[in-house]
Amino acid sequence: MTASSEAPQVAAPRSRNPLTTKRSPGAGGRKGHLAVQVFLAVVALVWLFPVLYALLGSFRDYQYTSENGYFSFGGFTLQNYKDAWQQANFSHTMLNSAYITIPGVTLTLFLSCCVAFVVARFSWKFNVVLLGLFTAANLLPPQALLIPVYRMFRAIEVPFWFSESGTLLNSYWGLIAVNVAFQSGFCAFVLSNYMKALPREIYESAVVDGAGVLRQFFQLTLPLCRPPLAALATLEVTWIYNEFFWATVLLQSGDKFPVTSSINNLRGQFFTDNNLVAAGSIVIALPTLIVFFLLQKQFVAGLTLGATKG
């Protein structure tokens, strides 16, 4: 009996189509993710380096840094903050900034809410024109309006109890009015887009329950707009608090200047102590940082509104 031995047949490997072959997101994806993280870390360090360098210099003695250089390590002291607070008169200028910033932000947000509510909830032929009129203030540079605004404020007469000069010049209210005029357009534009996204069924139910326009605005719209209002409040506090151009133009007496002008008091006649200026800059930046950290959650929520809708 003969046994026939046959060689097993091996199937030929199939050729893979490069168009239909799926690549596993393994090493390539991890490398790309790592590259993005490295890039963001480098950008963050470049962005934070001036702030961290100023913070480090604010705690160092000027004599030590002049002898050993600014890239040395040592000579730490708190005297710069004490001298900066006294020489710059921060206790007075910060009150001036509060007199300007708090009413300015409050009026800006309230008037912007009123405009946005009208634009978003009422349909009439001047709807877009009204919104464009408010946003037009953001299209022109403030330097181009310097002379007209100055002459207008000098010509407007007000009671002496309202302004010591009898005009809107050298007055907190004049500076507040300018900031409100230039900031209301941006806030009205942002708030109108958010209010348009609110369901109309809510307002229809409110009308059925007998709610008028004012009640819809104060008891329905404003509570729903807290996230964008918090985000805009953070931005407006930063912008109005740091504003220096119109304060230089419209204020004529040094006792009304905001805190941003105090940095000039730290400059010497023959030389400038950079460590002292750095300490003063850190003190000036603290209020805006405190506001940001207090409203951080609301600020992020306001910026990401509608990001997950679709």
Score class of each variant (00 low, 15 high):
197 A>T: 15
294 L>V: 09
248 T>F: 07
35 A>I: 13
242 N>R: 01
36 V>A: 12
258 P>E: 06
135 T>C: 14
219 Q>S: 12
1 M>L: 11
92 H>Y: 12
169 L>P: 03
79 Q>G: 14
86 Q>W: 06
105 V>C: 02
199 P>T: 03
38 V>E: 08
156 I>L: 13
109 L>C: 10
111 L>V: 11
83 D>F: 11
265 N>V: 01
71 F>N: 12
6 E>P: 07
217 F>R: 05
62 Y>S: 08
151 R>N: 12
190 V>D: 04
218 F>K: 03
103 P>M: 07
194 Y>Q: 12
113 C>M: 12
193 N>W: 07
5 S>I: 15
225 C>K: 00
78 L>E: 08
131 L>V: 05
141 P>W: 06
119 V>D: 08
226 R>F: 10
214 L>Y: 10
237 V>C: 10
81 Y>M: 06
280 G>K: 02
271 F>L: 05
214 L>T: 08
165 S>C: 06
218 F>V: 05
309 K>R: 04
102 I>C: 02
13 P>I: 00
90 F>Q: 00
91 S>Q: 13
17 N>R: 15
120 A>D: 04
53 Y>W: 15
24 S>N: 05
197 A>K: 15
97 S>T: 04
202 I>E: 03
261 S>A: 15
238 T>Q: 11
77 T>D: 00
41 A>T: 13
189 F>V: 05
299 F>E: 04
77 T>Q: 02
107 L>I: 03
252 Q>F: 10
306 G>K: 11
232 L>C: 04
13 P>S: 01
90 F>I: 07
37 Q>M: 06
230 A>W: 07
32 G>H: 10
90 F>P: 00
132 G>A: 13
288 T>Y: 01
22 K>T: 02
135 T>A: 12
98 A>V: 15
49 F>D: 12
283 V>H: 00
282 I>C: 00
24 S>T: 02
196 K>A: 06
298 Q>M: 06
239 W>R: 10
310 G>I: 03
30 R>S: 08
54 A>N: 08
153 F>W: 08
170 N>V: 15
252 Q>P: 01
84 A>G: 08
309 K>T: 03
286 L>W: 01
220 L>T: 14
179 N>R: 08
67 E>I: 04
253 S>C: 09
193 N>D: 09
304 T>R: 07
260 T>M: 14
272 T>K: 07
263 I>T: 08
208 V>M: 11
111 L>I: 11
255 D>A: 11
151 R>D: 10
137 A>T: 11
254 G>A: 11
139 L>A: 11
183 Q>T: 12
71 F>L: 15
178 V>S: 02
21 T>H: 14
183 Q>A: 13
182 F>Q: 04
269 Q>A: 10
213 V>S: 07
219 Q>E: 11
280 G>I: 05
14 R>K: 15
85 W>N: 02
182 F>N: 01
237 V>I: 10
186 F>P: 02
196 K>M: 09
100 I>C: 08
248 T>V: 05
57 G>E: 03
143 Q>T: 15
275 N>V: 02
302 G>Q: 06
74 G>R: 04
77 T>V: 00
149 V>G: 06
102 I>F: 02
174 G>P: 02
107 L>Y: 03
20 T>D: 15
